[in-house]
Every structure is written in C-alpha cells, then in structure tokens.
Design a protein around this nucleic acid. Structure first.
Lengths: 346, 346
DNA sequence: ATCCTCCGTGTAATCGATTCCACGGAGCCC
DNA sequence: GGGCTCCGTGGAATCGATTACACGGAGGAT
C-alpha cells in the first residue's frame, strides 16, 4: 500500500508538504497542492489512521459499553450512537457487558489499551473498578441511561417521572386501583428510580404500593414471567402490571396468556421502554417511550464536547406515555391524559 | 501515562527486554522478567495498542458491516460476532449500512483507513465498488448471510432449502394448497434464494407458485403489510403467507389483524428467521430458525483463519423449521414433519 | 540599497512500541 | 587452553504519519 513517501516522491515534494495539503494547512502553494492531490489520486493513497493516531494521540474512536445488546432499547441506542459518531468523524467499538461487571471491566481495559478518545457507558450495577479508575483518571466518559451515583461523570438519560405520572393517571381514569410493578435490579439506577416514580405517582392518588405488588426482576423476559405468576397467585391479584422494561413486559404477557387471561379485560399491562414490537402484539401494549434516538445523539455530542475539553452538563430528556390498548383504553390515540388532580382520594 | 521506557528505567533494563517479557519471548532471564513484571505492576503500565499496531501492522480489530442493525436477526449475529471476536482477542467496529451501497462504501473506507485486520460483511445488493476493491486487493474478507455472486470470498450462511421443504410439507399436511410468499429484494442473494427454495418445494407437491402469490418486499415491516394487503385483495387470496424475513412477517401480521382475520383459522402465517418475539406474538409464529449464534462464530473463525493466512472454505449450516401455532398446527412441538413424498399429485 | 518580514518548503525529531543485529560472557568440546 | 555455540542483553532502526524549526527567496519599508 502506498505511503506518504510515495506520494511525496510522485508529486516531487517533501512528505511535510503532502501532510500539509492533506490537513488543509494554509501555507501551501496552489501549484504544490495540485500536484499532491494528483499524486494522491493516482496512487489511491489513503493516510494510515494508525500512524496518525500514534502521532496525534487521538484515535477518533469511541468506546460504547452496553449491558444487553439484544434488548431493542439498547440496540436502538447503539444504532443512534454509531450514526451520530460517524457524522462527527468517529468510529465506535461496541462491547456487550451482559450485565456482568467483570466483562465490563474487560471491555474498559481493552478500549483503554486501544486509546479510544472517549467512553460511553451504560454501567452495570455499581460499576466496576476499571471503569471508576478510568473516569477518575480523566478519560472522557459519559454515562447513558444508567449512571453511578457519586461519580462525577455527565449523564444523558430520560426522566420517566412525568410519563409515569401520566400512566398512573391513565390507569386511574380507567378505574384501576390495584397496580403492581415488576422492578429491575435494585442496584441499577433505572431499576430503583422507576419504582420510586411509580410509588410517588400512586401516592398522588392516595394509592398504596404494597410489598407484594413489587415484583423483583432482572430486566430479562423470564423474570417478568415469574414475577407475574407470583402476582396472579396472590389472593387479591393486581388489576394492572407495569413492567420496568420491555423484556419483562413480554414475559408478563406470556404469563398472562398461559393463565388464559384476556388483556385488558381480565388484567392490564404496561411497560417502560417502547419498542417497535409493542405495536404488533395482541393487544398493542401501552408503554412509556424514551426518546432513544435523541439520547444517543445527545450522548455522543456530550462526549465529543468533553473530548474537546469543553465543560459538559448532564442531559435529561423527557419520556412520554404512548397509550395503546393493553390497559383498556378505548382508542389507539397517543395523546396523554389530562393532568391528575393530586390527592383526590378515591 | 507510563510508557515502555518508564518501565525499562524502573526495572533497570532496556526497552527491548521489557518488550520481550511482555511478548513472552523465551530468552529473558528469570531475574529480569521478575523485575520487569514488578515495574509493570507498580506503574500500572499498559502497552499502547496503537504503537504496537503501527509496528506489527496488525490492529487485532475486525470490521463488521451489517445492513440493518435493528433487525433482531442481525443484532443477534452482531452480538455473536463480537463475543467470538473478543474470545480470540479481537475488537469489533460495527457499521450500519442501512441497505445503502453508498453508506456501505463509506464504512469500508474508514475501516480500511483504520487498518482493520479483516472485514465481515453482509453486503447490500450487488455490493459496492469499495467493497469489491477491498476484497480483490486482498483484504481478508468474509461474507455472512448474504453474498455477492462471482466474488471469490468465503461465505458463511445458512441453507434454508431443507427447512423450507419441511415447512411446505407441514403446510401441505395441514391441508393448505394456496401458498404465497413475500420475497426480499431480488438483488440480495437471500431475497431470491428463498423464493427459489419455496417454489422448488411447492413443485415437489405438484403445487404452482403463481405470479400474484409472490409479493415484493424489502425486508422491512411496512413492505410486508403492503404485500399482504395485496394478497388479501386478490379474488382468490392465499391460505398461507410465508414472509422471507421476520420484519415483513410482522407487517403481514398487522395487515391480517387489520382485516379482522383470525390466525391460523382464516389465514396462516410463517416466517424466515426466528426471533425471540415470535414466541410472544398471538399466535406464536411458525418460523425457520437460522443457527445465528453459530453463524457468527463460524464467520469469525473463518475470518481469523484467513487473516492468519490459512485457506478457508465457505461454511453452510442448516436452518431448521420451528413449528408453532400460526399455521394451524395442533401442538407447539418443534419436531419437523416427516419427509415429503415428492411429486404426489393432489 | 539594505534590512525585515513573511511565505513556501524541506529536514529531522517525535509518538511508543517491536525486532534485527551485535556483543560479551558462560559453558562445552577437543 | 583455544575456539564454538548459545544465551541474555542493549543499541538502534523501523512502522507512517505530524510538526517544530531552519532556511532561502520575494516583496515591502526605510
């Protein structure tokens, strides 16, 4: 493969001049520029990014560590990140952590070895030593979706509280009073936050969230199935099951069907995270949609800003309720219900 | 960040010795090795992969170009590729081509600039100039799932013919005679092959595949919906719709529901590519499952072999039929039906 | 006419590793 | 004891770019 020296020789100039032309340095004569460009074209020369990286100490590569690529939410996030990164001239190396801190550490280490310019992470519970070291050591880092409390790293995420409130209002208006939730792992921020938001929203309607109406899940379908079965075995089962992520909602759906229940007449179902498939299930599932594409874009923007040395603040985007038929709504409309009148006791 | 020189100084040896220790070169004294290791540990030294790559002319990085990451089939493929690559000490840079040859070329170019060791591609229709150049120029390349006829590149894929035959046998046994297919883009190998396999299998039962029973899709859900609507508008609609990929099957499902049809009583549905969601739809969808994980693994194995200079042959793995309820099967069992007796005219 | 400035250009140092080659010393054989 | 072969080691070249610095010549100011 042709190198910069070959180009220099072919154009009858020095390598310095070639480099200047390629990097749009101002002081190059029009004549030299033309000859270099011609030589580049003729030889099909492409600069070696590895050599360039060594010299400039930047790779124009971002590392993205995700907890579960098979989860459509994260898939979409990854896609959006890759897209935006490419638009800004960055490549993305993806690592799947599979909810394992060990694997996450492994990825952080290889990414650091490869001298990526920045790290985008949706951390597993509590994070992992390598990750924390990297962040503290000054590697430009941005958390997306999940974050680690107490670590000084910008976070890009969606705030579901208002959407959860809308959801509860919607459910309440439909006459539901016994609402249950399938929570994610308590150690993840998204896991605990969603439960808190749900409980708070219920409180506004004077509703309780009893212990037995909080199922413990792990963001995987199977755990949603198990939690739902436990709910259904209760002397007084809930009228609504709200799953804290899309996979658990799917598991819940299975469990309900296995019991021969009709949705939404016998029991209602709602989910956090909207995914394309929820339109195609029977019935279509009411869900809280995160602005996933925007999150990915914002995360990359924040990270590149950080890389360029600018100061960056965390970004929080609102999630919104998408009403479908799984809770008993008459229409398919996506309009959020009107604001609840807080503390209107039943 | 500490460099190899710092380690050498701290250990009281030359950089050459440090490098030898790190690369497990035999001729290093036990004493020197110990001192180097101690220094490495103390300084928290990690070799700079960029510098190493420049010198050794290998990056231990693979490029993966996929036509649609949001398609669960490709997501799973990507995941499996990343997993296997990591196991072999490679990182993966993913590029989403979005079925666009231009975008695909763009990705090939940046990947080549980054001097990736090998390229894994599921090419868009007809490929693209850069890609063909790269393959011809000797960049280790392997095609997955799809391939480009006439290009001398190993292909790792699933052969669906036998599974399609099983499917047709299954449908025939259930009494269905009017079978339609929603095809993928004719320019993709997977697009045309599946139709051919379907037609051949029908032939074994003396069944025709009339022109109007071949819908033209593009592997996206919306095209599946449109094609299905066209089928249903026919004077004599098909009894079965077979979608050549999972997204189009979803679109077909929607179209059938919109018409108020009951599956499988009014019309049957089957799909190529099995995905986790097909278990959760109502009814669960009969599908042809590719050994996706194995494909990813095999692809990485083939590519790394190619990189190491070994000769590599194409790999074809069998797909298998997974019978669920969307075609009218009584059971949920996954056992394939018995072999058809060819040419048994109706 | 002389000096200064600025512009275009080339030479060479540099990034951080790997690796070829040379060298000194130890051990072995005859 | 002299010559050989290994073995462990270090010096220096190398990978392919970027870039600091030096330099020669043109043009403007005095």
């Amino acid at each position: 493969m042709a190198g910069i020296k070959d180009v220099a020789a072919a154009a009858g100039v020095s390598v310095a001049t070639v480099s200047r032309v390629l990097n749009a340095h101002p002081s190059v004569s029009e004549d030299a520029r033309a000859r270099v460009l011609a030589a580049v074209d003729e030889l099909g020369y492409r600069p070696n990014a590895v050599a360039r990286s060594l010299r400039t100490a930047q790779t124009r590569t971002l590392g993205l560590i995700i907890s579960d690529v098979m989860n459509p939410y994260f898939t979409e996030l990854a896609r959006s990140v890759e897209e935006q990164a490419r638009a800004l001239g960055y490549s993305v190396i993806i690592g799947n952590a599979d909810e394992s801190p060990r694997l996450q550490d492994d990825h952080v280490r290889t990414l650091l070895d490869r001298r990526i310019d920045g790290l985008l992470v949706s951390p597993t519970d509590g994070g992992s030593p390598q990750l924390l070291d990297a962040a503290r050591a000054g590697t430009p880092t941005v958390f997306v979706d999940r974050w680690i409390p107490g670590v000084d790293v910008p976070v890009v995420r969606a705030d579901g509280r208002s959407a959860v409130r809308d959801l509860v209002a919607h459910l309440h208006a439909l006459g539901h009073r016994r609402l249950a939730i399938i929570a994610g792992p308590a150690a993840t921020t998204t896991g605990s936050e969603r439960v808190a938001a749900f409980r708070a929203a219920l409180g506004e309607y004077g509703l309780e969230l009893p212990e037995e109406y909080v199922g413990q899940g792990d963001f995987q379908a199977e755990s949603g199935r198990r939690a739902t079965e436990a709910f259904l075995a209760l002397p007084e089962p809930p009228e609504v099951v709200f799953a804290a992520d899309n996979l658990m909602a799917l598991g819940a759906l299975d469990a309900m069907r296995a019991r021969g229940l009709h949705i939404p007449d016998d029991i209602a179902l709602a989910a956090f995270d909207d995914i394309p498939w929820f339109v195609h299930t029977d019935p279509p599932i009411t869900a809280i949609a995160q602005p996933t594409r925007e999150l990915g874009r914002a995360a990359v923007r924040a990270l590149t800003a950080l890389i360029e040395g600018r100061r960056v603040r965390s970004v929080t985007l609102p999630a919104r309720l998408v009403v479908r038929r799984s809770c008993g709504a008459r229409s398919d409309a996506a309009a959020p219900p009107s604001r609840p009148r807080p503390r209107s006791n039943p």
